[in-house]
């Protein structure tokens, strides 16, 4: 679990302070309406790591739920999750009818994940993004994003054609980031969606900044200082030598960051 951005009102005379904070949370993506099957599957998962699920807030993701796949029985589902010690508090994706049913159970309706595939267009598009950047932050230096003059196009992705130098940061808000030049050590790439690097990647790359666990990093030549997807990160030291300097993809597989040769 990387980088919770907790905020506090320490040292202030005010009674409270209103701030935004980002959290990395588990998401349960529902593919079936059959609550029995869900219960059985969940049981085995929780058995493997009972401590992990205790008092853990979870989000129910309906973006993978098949159209006409039946009603989601929220009362049963919420009861089931609570039974295992989890705290279901919100729903992401799904239809308006499902949202109404979820609201009846006092579940929050969270903004849909960005950069999602087939069912993205069915999202209601209401509400703010589910969470904000769970990124390890570097202190001190002012961001110099404008430096690389990234080009954004209508489709919501960002293209960088010049080298990203040490100390520069590029953030592709709401989409993918493609860099066709070298990314120097000490540079930082961030994107809400995927990151593609066609030159050597020697700096940091953080995909899925808003918690999109489906985001991936693709690169031609992995020499990165740090790679991260939705807050799950690995530093250079933990990247096996045989995966360095070759084309790889980096993605999350059940909360584990995997680096795979392409």
């Amino acid at each position: 679990m990387a980088g919770h951005q907790q905020t506090s009102a320490a040292g202030r005379p005010a009674v409270f302070e209103l701030k935004a904070a980002g959290f990395t949370l588990p998401i349960i993506r529902l593919f079936e309406a059959d609550i029995e099957a869900v219960a059985a599957e969940l049981g085995t998962r929780v058995e493997q790591a009972p401590e992990f699920f205790r008092n853990t807030p979870v989000v129910i993701d309906l973006s993978g739920f098949p159209e006409g796949g039946g009603e989601v029985e929220f009362p049963l589902l919420v009861g089931l999750l609570r039974g295992y010690g989890m705290i279901p508090f919100g729903v992401r994706g799904g239809t308006k009818a499902q949202h109404a049913a979820a609201e009846a159970m006092e579940l929050a309706i969270l903004g849909d994940a960005e950069g999602r595939g087939a069912r993205a267009e069915r999202a209601t598009g209401s509400g703010e993004p589910a969470r904000s950047a769970p990124a390890p932050k570097r202190g001190g230096e002012a961001p110099s994003e404008a430096a690389v003059s990234p080009r954004r196009n209508g489709a919501g992705f960002t293209l960088v054609t010049r080298p990203v130098r040490s100390g520069q940061r590029v953030y592709a808000a709401g989409g993918d980031l493609s860099v066709i030049a070298a990314v120097s050590s000490g540079a930082e790439l961030m994107a809400d969606g995927n990151i593609h690097v066609y030159g050597p990647l020697r700096g940091r790359a953080l995909a899925g900044m808003k918690g999109n666990t489906d985001a991936r990093i693709f690169c031609q030549d992995l020499q990165a200082e740090l790679v991260s997807v939705a807050g799950h990160y690995r530093v250079s030291e933990n990247i096996p030598a045989e995966l360095r300097g070759i084309p790889v993809q980096i993605y999350l597989d059940h909360r584990i960051l995997r680096i795979e040769k392409l």
Partner: peptide, 10 residues
């Protein structure tokens, strides 16, 4: 490298 970044931004 850092200097080159500053050259292209400032």
């Amino acid at each position: 490298d850092r200097m080159l970044g500053i050259l292209s931004s400032k």
